[in-house]
Design a binder for these strands. Structure first.
Lengths: 116, 116
DNA sequence: TCTCGGTATTCGGTGTTGCTATGTACCGGT
DNA sequence: ACCGGTACATAGCAACACCGAATACCGAGA
């Protein structure tokens, strides 16, 4: 990937992380590992932490410090009510965007010629 | 919409504009008007122009100055070969992102309770 | 004529975001 | 004692969309 993905992640990554937190509580290191496993291979370590700090300061998540057996204490985040509202709004915006893009996308008449 | 849309547009708007240029040549004012008509109500005037300057400098588009009957000359942009490659790459990145997000999106079991 | 609105582009400054790079800290195994 | 895995934090940077203002061309109306 390249610069394109970096720019496209802006705003979207936040939604992704909040969506994860909507399904279960999690901490930064865990989220980063999960993202990498999902194919976001070059997500920087610090990126997720910075993002979590921001959403915490905006009051979208609650935090609890939990001791770990194998390292420094974890900061476990959970999505709160305000965060859920925000996430709902995120999905709305995402839908809007995705619909417009799907409309612009060239019809899949092509048969995936494995060029390159 | 709000800040969310602004952030999510980053990188995506470029793809949208290039996708438009893939279907037909166009100039800035025209593109802005079209975007607004498509629901991107608060796309700033200057944003599209700045974007066009960038893609031109990267050599993704060709430009031709065309006199207008009702105003200053238009700068008509067309997607070139390099731009098409870039656009292909854009669609690939977009697909990747869209797939991951669609996976994260809560299943539509809910019946759109109009709460709030 | 002078002004106003629609057409059309440009540019400097701002805020948000993800990346880079680095530092801190805790732990177990060698 | 050292190293690697776990876990978090942060300062500086680059890119991008927005805001606001300016410039320029034109035709219609006061």
């Amino acid at each position: 990937m390249g610069k394109q993905e970096t720019e496209m992640l802006k705003g979207v990554l936040e939604g992704i992380v909040l969506a994860i937190l909507a399904t279960r509580a999690a901490y930064g290191y865990e989220i980063t590992a999960w993202l990498r496993q999902q194919g976001f291979s070059d997500i920087a370590e610090g990126t997720v932490y910075a993002l979590l700090v921001r959403v915490e300061q905006r009051g979208l998540v609650d935090v609890e410090k939990v001791p770990s057996e194998k390292g420094p204490p974890r900061k476990v985040y959970t999505l709160n009510a305000q965060g859920e509202d925000y996430l709902t709004e995120f999905w709305r915006t995402w839908s809007f965007l995705a619909e417009r893009l799907e409309q612009l996308r060239p019809a899949r008449l092509v048969n995936e010629e494995g060029e390159k």
